[in-house]
Design a binder for these strands. Structure first.
Length: 338
DNA sequence: TTTCTTACA
DNA sequence: TGTAAGAA
């Protein structure tokens, strides 16, 4: 097949095809006489794949590696690329939501004041820019990919001196499950599910669970352990689910990886995916009280929330809250969306 | 007529 | 990636 047939068949432009070749995504043979490109079925298939991946917003570089993986029969990688794409789309969706809200704010100001007060504009613009940056600055700083395989052993054989972070791990998990005490037929979300240890508590009693984690390797382990659990790549700041999807949201030993600013966004996100009257239960390392309390160092990339801040947030957002303390840092927080 | 390459937007 | 120009 020559280039024009392809162009019509897949309705694209010849320039695009040559461009893909230039970028090394395809490499059709050329006729010796006139240098015309000749396309095989294989190449048509590749082109179709490129178009499809393009359609979901993947850039050419990523498509190239995805294609290479698929050549090697590695469909896991492709799945990862698609999930990454999906989670990015959720980030963008939220950004748009934010921008819409900002615009609405400006429209309201315009209506009320007949003019745009500069301070208001500035505030709204700054606000949305800040939110955008907070989301953009999210990264895997913790190398969970590298720790995925050994993670379960680490939490199983705790050396409390070396890993004070996971002290009372098992107790915390079962406490969360107990607190939520899910009804048959309910659907729950485990944020930062890792290898699915918390979700497993619910799965064991026949509850449908979805898990979100930012580490693909953690999710791989999780899928091995719980093949029937739905897992998605994503993060706390742009939960890859639509609004009002879950009866309850849980999370353990993960929230403290967020900065305080990110925590606010994250709570907002949990609220978004939670059904009306949904429940939320967090097990995490939290400073309990008083400013003058001696706060143990949280370590790099860790930000223990203050209990008071959390309670305030829940209060302001119409949640009923209860909490209990497991050890000096570890708390279980239970909030119900009224 | 068709496609190719190259340069530029 | 689109468009334009010159060549095979």
């Amino acid at each position: 097949m020559q280039i024009n047939e392809i162009v019509q068949k897949l309705n694209m432009t010849a320039r695009a095809i040559r461009f893909y070749e230039e970028k090394g995504l395809i490499s059709p043979q050329k006729q010796a006489i006139n240098q015309y490109r000749v396309f095989t079925e294989q190449e048509v298939w590749r082109l179709q794949t490129i178009i499809a991946l393009r359609e979901v917003g993947m850039n050419l570089e990523d498509i190239k590696s995805a294609l290479e993986q698929m050549e090697g029969g590695d469909y896991d990688e492709l799945q990862y690329y698609l999930e990454l794409q999906r989670s990015m789309m959720f980030s963008q969706w939220l950004e748009y939501k934010q921008m819409i809200a900002t615009t609405d704010g400006l429209i309201d100001l315009l209506k009320q004041e007949k003019s745009l007060p500069l301070s208001g504009i500035y505030e709204l613009a700054e606000g949305s820019k800040r939110l955008r940056n907070v989301r953009k600055n999210w990264r895997d700083q913790w190398d969970y990919d590298g720790r995925a395989v050994t993670h379960d052993q680490v939490v199983a054989n705790l050396d409390e001196d070396r890993d004070p972070e996971y002290k009372d791990y098992a107790e915390a998990l079962s406490s969360v499950a107990e607190t939520i005490s899910p009804q048959t037929g309910e659907v729950g979300l485990d944020l930062g599910t890792g290898t699915g240890n918390l979700a497993g508590q619910f799965l064991a009693s026949g509850i449908t669970m979805c898990g979100v984690d930012q580490s693909k390797e953690m999710l791989r382990q999780c899928r091995l352990k719980f093949p029937h659990m739905e897992t998605k790549l994503g993060n706390f700041l742009a939960i890859p689910y639509l609004d009002d999807q879950f009866d309850f949201v849980v999370s353990s030993f993960a929230f403290h990886h967020l900065t305080n600013e990110q925590k606010q966004l994250s709570l907002q996100e949990m609220e978004r995916v939670l059904k009306p009257n949904g429940r939320l239960c967090l097990a995490d390392l939290i400073y309990s009280e008083a400013e003058n309390e001696i706060k143990p160092a949280a370590g790099a990339g860790k930000f223990y929330a203050s209990l008071a801040d959390l309670l305030t947030w829940f209060d302001q957002h119409g949640f009923m809250v209860q909490y209990k303390q497991i050890n000096s840092l570890l708390h279980i927080i239970h909030a119900i969306k009224a």
